[in-house]
């Protein structure tokens, strides 16, 4: 609720909002603030800072964690953050509302392996739901209504021959979804890591990988900026974050270890969870796919021009 309120107020106040721009530190580094969510997806940023990839580009990062991705968009638009991380559908929606958001780099992508992705729909072990089709007519928990998780779950259900319009979605924070399934409040829930590994470790069963099932290399999240950015800073950030993601992809153990610097994930879970893909380029076709799904579900009034959002 609060996230939506924040977004609504941001839309109204965009013109009035004033923020502090990047400043230069004593040793000549440009100081920028990046809004992130303390989840697995952003491990490359933390790793990149450790490895000095941002300092190489004369950038000093201040990472500010927000509880929800939707709070980051207003932060970037108002100039609080110079860059932010958000899921692709949220950015498509923000862009369609006329907010000046511009993707600067790929953020996180599906592994493309059904059953071995970082996001999936899970049910209780003894649930009669066996395949995606069975989710039709059931209650499914998602962390945000009318966003990437409802469109992709609907898509994989439709692909399996079910009727996505018969699904009742319930909005719950990720930590509350497995308890709701256990109590029987919902029949299924869409989870991402580390909750996916925790839930399956406690006996829940994966039904379908909604990201991998939508597009093999689905671009789930993106790094983005607002409109009035210094282009040299944007280029430097893009270079550094791309380098960080390449490094994280090549050194998954270091990416895994970086998790303990900004999360409290249990060491056993940290070792077992499925890392997402951190590709260096945006999979444009998959963003188009998400836009089509958002339009089909009525989240977007018309087909968006991807050139406005994507680099």
């Amino acid at each position: 609720m609060i996230r939506r309120l924040v977004l609504a107020v941001a839309v109204m106040l965009t013109a009035a909002a004033c923020g502090s721009g990047p400043s230069v530190t004593e040793d000549g580094l440009t100081k920028i603030t990046v809004g992130v969510i303390p989840i697995v997806d952003v491990a490359p940023v933390y790793l990149g800072v450790q490895k000095g990839f941002f300092a190489e580009q004369r950038l000093e990062l201040e990472l500010q964690t927000a509880q929800g991705g939707a709070a980051i968009v207003p932060g970037v638009v108002s100039g609080q953050f110079q860059f932010g991380f958000s899921n692709t559908t949220s950015l498509l929606l923000a862009s369609a509302q006329g907010l000046p958001v511009k993707a600067v780099a790929s953020g996180v992508a599906s592994t493309g392996e059904p059953g071995k992705d970082f996001g999936a729909v899970v049910v209780a072990a003894d649930s009669p739901i066996k395949t995606a089709r069975d989710l039709a007519g059931k209650k499914v928990a998602v962390n945000t209504l009318r966003n990437i998780n409802t469109t992709t779950v609907g898509n994989v259900v439709a692909a399996d021959g079910g009727d996505p319009s018969a699904i009742t979605y319930v909005e719950l924070p990720f930590p509350d979804i497995a308890p709701a399934i256990a109590r029987g409040d919902v029949d299924a829930g869409q989870l991402v890591e580390p909750f996916l590994t925790i839930a399956t470790g406690q006996g829940d069963r994966q039904v379908v990988s909604n990201y991998a099932g939508t597009a093999p290399g689905l671009t789930v999240g993106l790094y983005f900026t607002g409109s009035q950015q210094d282009q040299a800073v944007v280029r430097a950030f893009t270079t550094a974050i791309t380098r960080s993601m390449e490094y994280a992809s090549a050194h998954p153990d270091e990416a895994r270890a970086a998790l303990s610097t900004y999360t409290k994930i249990d060491p056993a879970v940290q070792a077992a969870l499925v890392l997402p893909k951190w590709p260096s380029t945006v999979d444009r076709a998959s963003v188009q796919r998400l836009a089509d799904l958002a339009q089909k579900d009525g989240l977007l009034p018309r087909a968006p021009d991807l050139n406005v959002l994507l680099p």
């Binding site: 609060i2 309120l5 924040v6 609504a8 107020v9 941001a10 106040l13 909002a17 603030t33 809004g35 500010q64 964690t65 927000a66 709070a71 207003p74 932060g75 108002s78 609080q80 953050f81």
Partner: peptide, 12 residues
């Protein structure tokens, strides 16, 4: 007032 302070001060 949370939405307001978030816009003005972010998560500072």
């Amino acid at each position: 007032l949370i939405p307001l302070v978030v816009l003005v001060y972010g998560s500072r």
